[in-house]
């Protein structure tokens, strides 16, 4: 079932930086991702893991979704990262470099064991898989359906373009991967996240990319700078016209339900259930960050 949680912005924070770990909540992203992988140097893996373990337990993170990107389980760091994240109370574990459904299954088995050991409710730790290679993209449908715990899959561009023997450009290089990941997510009824946009000074380019992925249908995007959050939320906000229409659809649906009618109609036309669901989603986004400016 598609979740009602908004996940437009997922802010990356290097797990090794205590100043950022303890203040990032003020930017109000939809989710905060504590990174133990690429943003942390090899010699600080152990210290970052402990910082994140404790930061997760801060009261300020109780009402914001926390995601921890662990190192691959095949490394010596990965299993320990997972212990810290699950025991620390992370809402979601982000698995990097997911190539197959088995990667997710292996992760889930490890999570179950840790939940049982530490007394956390089994099943309460959600998962997301990052797809960063050609095999990952090709296996996206299987990956997206590999676990009931998955809340989404994400495309990670950096490793992917290398694997594809190309480099980041205007988006052409990601065209197939974006479509494939998005379709896989929709088949599995989970969220889809787009790549990081790393040129912090290119606001125009960022907005262009956001517009593209929004229109494609992505739920949101990974972000590395807090300044991008508001830009992204605004771009995802519905227009006043969309909000007005959504209100009418929802009102009609509510009325139909009150009247005990199985069919919703608006201005004499029948409105399908997916349209009602979409209208509810529009209103949720508007409630979260207003109408588009």
């Amino acid at each position: 079932m598609t979740s009602t949680k908004l996940r437009r912005s997922m802010l990356f924070l290097p797990g090794s930086n205590p100043a950022m770990l303890s203040t990032a909540f003020v930017y109000r992203p939809d989710s905060i991702m504590f990174d133990l992988e690429d943003a942390v140097s090899l010699r600080e893996k152990d210290t970052a893991r402990l910082l994140v373990f404790h930061a997760l337990q801060l009261p300020v993170y109780r009402d914001i979704e926390t995601v921890v990107r662990i190192n691959p389980l095949s490394t010596s760091f990965g299993p320990l990262d997972l212990e810290a994240a699950v025991r620390g109370g992370a809402d979601v574990i982000r698995l990097p470099k997911t190539d197959t459904a088995e990667d997710v299954e292996q992760l889930e088995a490890a999570v179950v064991r840790i939940e049982q050991q530490c007394g956390r409710e089994v099943g309460s730790t959600k998962l997301m898989a990052a797809i960063e290679s050609a095999s990952g993209v090709v296996n996206a449908v299987a990956i997206a359906q590999a676990s009931k715990r998955l809340i989404g899959i994400a495309l990670a561009g950096f490793d992917y373009v290398i694997d594809m023997q190309t480099s980041r450009g205007d988006g052409t290089e990601l065209f197939y991967a974006r479509c494939a990941v998005l379709h896989a997510a929709r088949v599995a009824k989970i969220d889809a996240f787009d790549v990081v946009f790393s040129d912090l000074n290119d606001e125009e380019g960022f907005l262009k990319e956001v517009e593209l992925i929004r229109r494609l249908g992505f739920n949101g995007k990974s972000l590395i700078n807090p300044r991008q959050i508001e830009l992204l939320h605004n771009a995802y906000a519905p227009t006043q016209k969309e909000v007005d229409y959504a209100r009418r659809v929802v009102a009609a649906a509510t009325k139909a339900e009150e009247d005990g009618l199985g069919v919703v109609s608006l201005n004499g036309k029948m409105v399908d259930a997916p349209v009602v669901a979409h209208a509810q989603r529009v209103l949720r986004i508007a409630a979260a960050s207003g109408v588009r400016k």
């Binding site: 205590p18 770990l21 303890s22 152990d46 210290t47 402990l50 404790h54 930061a55 337990q57």
Partner: peptide
């Protein structure tokens, strides 16, 4: 000027090392 949780994390990391 670290938060308590940072102090705990750093102490534990140093001791474990």
């Amino acid at each position: 000027g670290a938060l308590d949780c940072t102090i705990r994390a750093r102490l534990q990391a140093a001791v474990l090392r």
